[in-house]
Measured scan of single mutants.
Amino acid sequence: KPRTPFTTSQLLALERKFRQKQYLSIAERAEFSSSLNLTETQVKIWFQNRRAKAKR
């Protein structure tokens, strides 16, 4: 499956949310993903990858 090209504004929103909170609840993820026009899976995986990056 092809890589999702996130827009700059989506990335800024994702990073801002990640700084507030590294783990989103299912409800938060649902609301946040629809506000960004992304799927919940895209947001879930982005947060997983971002947490992995933060550990490195």
Rank of each mutant, 00 (worst) to 15 (best):
K1Y: 08
K1W: 02
K1T: 10
P2L: 11
P2Q: 11
P2R: 06
P2T: 05
P2N: 13
P2A: 13
R3S: 15
R3H: 11
R3C: 12
R3E: 15
R3F: 12
T4R: 03
T4M: 11
T4C: 07
P5Y: 12
P5L: 10
P5Q: 14
P5G: 06
F6C: 02
F6S: 01
F6A: 01
F6E: 04
F6L: 06
F6I: 04
T7L: 08
T7C: 08
T7Y: 04
T7K: 05
T8D: 15
T8G: 06
T8K: 02
T8M: 14
T8L: 14
S9P: 10
S9T: 10
S9M: 15
S9G: 12
S9K: 09
S9Y: 06
Q10T: 08
Q10W: 00
Q10E: 01
Q10C: 11
Q10G: 05
Q10I: 05
L11T: 07
L11A: 11
L11K: 04
L11C: 10
L12D: 15
L12Q: 14
A13H: 05
A13L: 11
A13D: 07
A13M: 08
L14Q: 02
L14W: 02
L14Y: 04
L14M: 06
L14I: 00
L14D: 00
E15L: 00
E15Q: 03
E15C: 03
E15R: 00
E15S: 00
E15D: 02
E15I: 00
R16K: 15
R16W: 11
R16Q: 10
R16V: 14
R16H: 14
R16Y: 10
K17L: 13
K17M: 12
K17R: 10
K17W: 03
F18G: 01
F18T: 03
F18L: 01
F18E: 05
F18C: 00
R19S: 15
R19T: 15
R19V: 13
R19G: 13
R19F: 06
R19C: 15
Q20W: 04
Q20S: 09
Q20M: 11
Q20K: 09
Q20G: 07
K21Y: 04
K21M: 07
K21V: 13
Q22D: 12
Q22S: 13
Q22F: 08
Q22L: 10
Y23I: 10
Y23M: 12
Y23W: 10
L24W: 03
L24C: 05
L24S: 01
L24Y: 01
S25I: 04
S25D: 11
S25G: 08
S25V: 03
I26S: 14
I26D: 15
I26K: 07
A27V: 08
A27Y: 07
A27F: 05
E28K: 00
E28C: 01
E28L: 03
E28P: 00
E28D: 06
E28F: 00
R29D: 05
R29P: 01
R29L: 15
A30E: 12
A30D: 09
A30V: 09
E31L: 07
E31F: 04
E31V: 04
E31W: 14
E31C: 08
E31R: 02
F32Y: 01
F32C: 09
F32V: 10
F32W: 00
F32K: 04
S33I: 02
S33A: 09
S33E: 01
S33H: 04
S33L: 00
S34W: 07
S34H: 13
S34R: 12
S34A: 14
S35V: 08
S35L: 07
S35G: 09
S35M: 10
S35F: 05
S35T: 07
L36V: 09
L36Y: 08
L36Q: 04
L36G: 08
L36C: 04
L36I: 12
N37A: 08
N37V: 03
N37G: 11
N37K: 07
N37C: 12
N37W: 01
N37L: 08
N37T: 06
L38K: 01
T39N: 11
T39F: 02
T39M: 02
T39P: 10
T39E: 09
E40A: 05
E40K: 00
E40W: 01
E40Q: 03
E40H: 01
E40Y: 03
E40F: 01
E40M: 01
T41P: 09
T41H: 08
T41S: 13
T41Q: 12
Q42Y: 13
Q42N: 08
Q42D: 14
Q42E: 14
V43I: 12
V43W: 01
V43R: 00
V43D: 00
V43F: 01
K44Y: 08
K44P: 01
K44H: 11
K44T: 15
I45D: 15
I45K: 06
I45T: 11
I45S: 09
W46L: 02
W46K: 03
W46Y: 06
W46M: 01
F47E: 05
F47Q: 02
F47P: 02
F47N: 02
F47S: 02
F47M: 04
F47H: 01
F47D: 02
Q48A: 11
Q48R: 05
Q48Y: 08
Q48N: 06
Q48S: 06
Q48P: 03
Q48V: 06
Q48H: 12
N49Q: 13
N49M: 07
N49D: 15
N49A: 13
R50Y: 01
R50K: 14
R50Q: 14
R50D: 03
R50W: 03
R50T: 07
R50H: 07
R51C: 02
R51A: 11
R51D: 05
R51G: 11
R51L: 14
R51M: 14
A52G: 10
A52Q: 13
A52Y: 05
K53P: 05
K53L: 14
K53S: 12
K53A: 14
K53W: 05
A54D: 08
A54K: 06
A54M: 07
A54G: 09
K55I: 11
K55P: 15
R56I: 14
